[in-house]
Each structure stands twice: as C-alpha cells, then as structure tokens.
Amino acid sequence: MLISITTGDIALITVEKSDPLSPDSQYLIEKLSAELAAITGDNGKSHFAPASMDEERSLWALAKDQQGKATGCGAIRPLTDNIAELKRMFSDRSAPGIGDALLVFLETAAQRMGYGAIWLATRRVNQRAIHFYEKNGYARIANYGPYKDREETVCFSKAL
C-alpha cells in the first residue's frame, strides 16, 4: 500500500511501509526523541523498540517528500487482537499534511489488518500532539497499560 498526497500532477508526500532500522527511520526516530525530550523531559524510547515491528500485524511507515527525503514516521503494533497501538508518530513539519498522510496510511493499514480501533498515549504537555489527534477524530480514554497511573499521560482511541 502506498499513499500519495498530490497537488495537480505533483506528488508532495508519499507514505509507505519501511524498515524501522533503515538510516532514514533511525534519523527520524532520533529527531522525534530529541523533540519529545525538549517538550516532555522524556525521549519516549522506553515504550518503543524497533524490534517490536517484527511482530505479526505490526507496521512501520515513512513519509517522504517529492525529492525522496524522509519527513515523517509512525508505527502500529498489536495491543490486543482488535486494538492497534499507534507509536512514534513524527513529522518534521517541512510540508503541510505529513502527519495527516501518515495517520491515514496507518489507520487504513490497521483496518486492513483486522483491527477495529487504534489507541495511543502522549504527554499532557504535548499540546501539538493532543490537538492533532483530537482534530483527527481521536477521543480521550482512560489510561491503559504502562500509562495507567501516569498523571502526565493522556490516552486516546479511535474506532476504525
């Protein structure tokens, strides 16, 4: 599956399945980790390992601009049989629509894999992320799993 955001005949953003260990992926993971550390004080690495993308019904995706430069990343992995967890969503914000394209790609992939919902967690201080998920139809839910008693965390869900 490939998603392409175009203006006229020009593809501005493409999103496709990728390898989380590729140089482009690792570069974006490090950029995300640095940005999260600056916003929240935690780089977020303790809740994601690239090796988890080897699990069945997991997917790592990269967004690229028209020159082929990696501009965003994101992943889904199984939380339960029916719920995918969204992880490591990041856009370098070099062009409008990167995050939206990634999210559409991952939601579509999750639905095709048989998931009925996507859950995610972010920090309350990360207002940009909270606004993005709310704008895209995600609703707040009770904190789950490792985030259960973490007051600094807010969790979201979206039915697919």
Rank of each mutant, 00 (worst) to 15 (best):
K31G: 01
L79P: 00
Q67I: 01
H47L: 12
G8V: 05
T6H: 13
Y147R: 04
Q111W: 01
Y27N: 14
T153K: 01
D24C: 03
G114N: 06
A49V: 02
D24G: 05
I3S: 08
E35Y: 06
S58K: 07
M53A: 11
P146W: 03
K158V: 10
R150I: 10
R124W: 00
D81Q: 12
A159Q: 13
K45C: 11
V15K: 04
G8M: 09
K45A: 12
K148Q: 14
A101E: 05
D100Y: 10
W119V: 13
A129Q: 06
W60T: 02
F48K: 04
Q111R: 14
S94P: 01
D100C: 02
A121W: 00
S22A: 15
V125P: 04
T80C: 02
L102R: 05
Q66N: 13
L21T: 13
K64Q: 14
P146E: 15
A159R: 11
L103R: 03
K31W: 00
L102G: 07
M89N: 05
M113P: 06
H47E: 13
M53R: 00
K45M: 12
A117T: 02
G44Q: 04
P78R: 09
A37D: 12
R150Q: 14
V104Q: 07
N143T: 03
R77H: 04
T71N: 05
R57Q: 11
I83A: 11
D42A: 11
S157E: 11
Y144N: 03
G68H: 03
K148S: 09
F105P: 05
A109K: 10
E35F: 02
Y133H: 05
E56N: 10
E16H: 10
F156R: 01
S91E: 04
A139N: 13
E152V: 05
P23I: 02
E16P: 00
A49M: 03
E85Q: 13
E107Q: 15
S157D: 01
